[in-house]
Amino acid sequence: MSAPSQPLLRVDHVVKTYESSAGPVHAVQGVSLDLQRGAFAALVGPSGCGKTTLLNAIGGLDRVTSGQIWIDGTEITALTDRETIEFRLHRIGFVFQAYNLVPVLNAWENVAFVMELQGIGVRDRRDRAFELLAAVGLTGKELQRPSQLSGGQQQRVAVARALASRPSLVLADEPTANLDSKSTETLLDIMRDLNHQEGTTFLFSTHDQRVINRAETIFRLEDGQLAR
């Protein structure tokens, strides 16, 4: 583990401004934050406060207008598009609000999807996928397609997929927004366990109080700025 003085994630004066027909939209305005390795953190705030925009910038999905973002010592804001894609593939896991599983792949193939993109052999992919599906409580569902799974089960597959390649950081954008209470609690338990077992750092964007209650670290965004 790195020393606390060397955070896994460092966001330094990040600004993201969109151009729209109504003029510039300042979605993120000079946000700076540090996140330690192994953290279980939440980025919270009302809808439209810039959570998803900041999460996209951290994940290298969107370019920042100014500022820097470092993950595990790499300044991702300085990477080329191709380097960013490679970085995402190997170092960041994503969990999306709408699960976004590949509908034509079954559960274990979805979990193994990122590993397949990495060129990992089928036996290793399969073993890791089955291990993760067991960890998220989906033993016996490995061969089922997303359409045969409930929303909660799909999101658990998505969590397993995010962890499959042993990323440094898992970014989860409103992961519980489409889930009922029971599924939310189950999912949070699973993510917390994996956070402990695998030492993976989690950062959620959420306005779900149940998620906020479980988070060890909370960053509150208001109108694109970090509120202390």
Partner: peptide, 16 residues
Amino acid sequence: QREFAMQLAMGMRRGL
């Protein structure tokens, strides 16, 4: 389109 976006987000190259 959403599926394309998700796969791109996870690190799939556009060429693939």
